[in-house]
Design a protein around this nucleic acid. Structure first.
Lengths: 234, 234
DNA sequence: GGTCCGATTTGATCTAGGTTAAACGCCGGG
DNA sequence: CCCGGCGTTTAACCTAGATCAAATCGGACC
């Protein structure tokens, strides 16, 4: 069966079944088939080639996005021509929920870092589901709360930690004792995400390598001295 | 009916009627009397003297707080002994909602900046109300979304604006063409909120005064050249 | 009014990190 | 295999803002 045939017959698009994909997200887990169908009925796939914009600062918001595959960066442009990456989103992650609940336009832009497939869930459909499904409402609330939490941690890092400490925080972000970490994007993007220039990020990497704490090869960082890193960076 | 009689009969405390106060908040507007009663039944007044802690980083969260009168600062302590003020909350504002929806402890501390009266709304009661009242859920969602929005704007300011620009942003934050702004707290607290040292904040004030853009007397800032400020700071 | 203490200002330095510029490396296309 | 270009590194320098130290202000309390 070709992709087109599948799509025509039962809501499968582009090689993935929307319902199945949605069901795997925390936000939609616990939903029964009927609920998932309602959401899926207002969900559209979208594709963005590497470098392509998904939305710009100031655009109106018509729903939220979920990354199926590929990678997206969120950020803002400085008046003076630079840009600051706020977040890097990968498969299974969603963005733009918060703006949906305000009447404001996007504060940030979203741009594909590689060829990316997205799902776009319509705003009105989310509102309707909240209306009839308190569990979904609670999921949505804890999603926003989690994001808020992360953002506050970022503010903490930006305000009172050095760049090396922020990088170490990034390295050790995920669970227990990682032995090797793959940078989630090119070094300049990660640098911007961590609020530093690529040059300075490069120096931090060099310094930490020199101290025997890590070893950098391309985008992979091998952790040589976990304790040392912890001692260094909180 | 005297206040005391009211308190004995139906949940009035300490000179304010809880229901009436709650009803004025955006979060609870549109609630009918029965709903408000349910909330009020799990709402307790609390008092904090100037300087007193309301909660600390790491404390578990049992509900959220609303400022009735007085003023509260939210912030975190630096490992190296400093502190960074994240937000200054005044009457009618609430805080701590987000943490309620996570199982995490508080990331920030809350401390009274002056003698303050608070209302504490129990967590379980909020969850129950969400369960049965989609409108309330939506209010809660837009409350969190608004906070997220403000935080992202802060991140934008911290990342790509100078301290003078941040201060101007603070000055012009509220609506249209203010002619005189009262600093929401002592200068050191505002400075920390804006991510600078008191010394540097003082210099910014001096510079802007010198340029004839503002005039500072104590905690009040008179705006002399609105256009000039706008041109300077975005 | 006088005293004291904390809050603010001022001044002199110091420094993390930004800027500029140049060299280098790696990778995809011809 | 060579070329061109971008992403990264290195090096020299510069600047916003921090830090340290001291003077000053202001207002609560006697």
């Amino acid at each position: 069966m070709t992709k087109a045939e599948g799509a025509a017959r039962k809501g499968t698009h582009s090689g993935i079944r929307i319902q199945e994909f949605l069901a795997r997200l925390p936000m939609f887990s616990e939903m029964d088939a009927a609920e998932l169908d309602r959401i899926a009925a207002h969900t559209l796939p979208a594709y963005a080639a590497k470098g392509e914009a998904i939305f710009h600062q100031g655009d109106p918001c018509t729903g939220f996005h979920i990354v199926v595959y590929g990678q997206v960066k969120l950020g803002f442009n400085s008046p003076h021509g630079g840009e600051k990456v706020v977040e890097i989103m990968g498969p299974g992650q969603s963005f733009g929920e918060a703006v949906m609940f305000l009447e404001k336009p996007y504060l940030v832009f979203a741009q594909a870092l590689s060829d990316t497939m997205l799902l776009h869930v319509a705003r009105h459909c989310v509102f309707e589901e909240i209306e009839r499904n308190p569990t979904f409402a609670r999921r949505m609330l804890s999603g926003l709360a989690r994001r808020l939490h992360m953002l506050v941690k970022d503010v903490e890092a930006y305000s009172l930690r050095s760049s090396a400490e922020r990088f170490i925080g990034y390295l050790l972000r995920e669970g227990e004792a990682p032995t090797e970490v793959e940078l989630s994007a090119g070094k300049s993007v990660v640098a911007s995400r961590l609020n530093m220039t690529p040059e300075h990020f490069s120096r931090v990497l060099a310094e930490l390598s020199g101290a025997g704490l890590i070893e950098v090869k391309g985008k992979t960082v091998r952790i040589l001295d976990l304790e040392g890193l912890r001692r260094f960076g909180g």
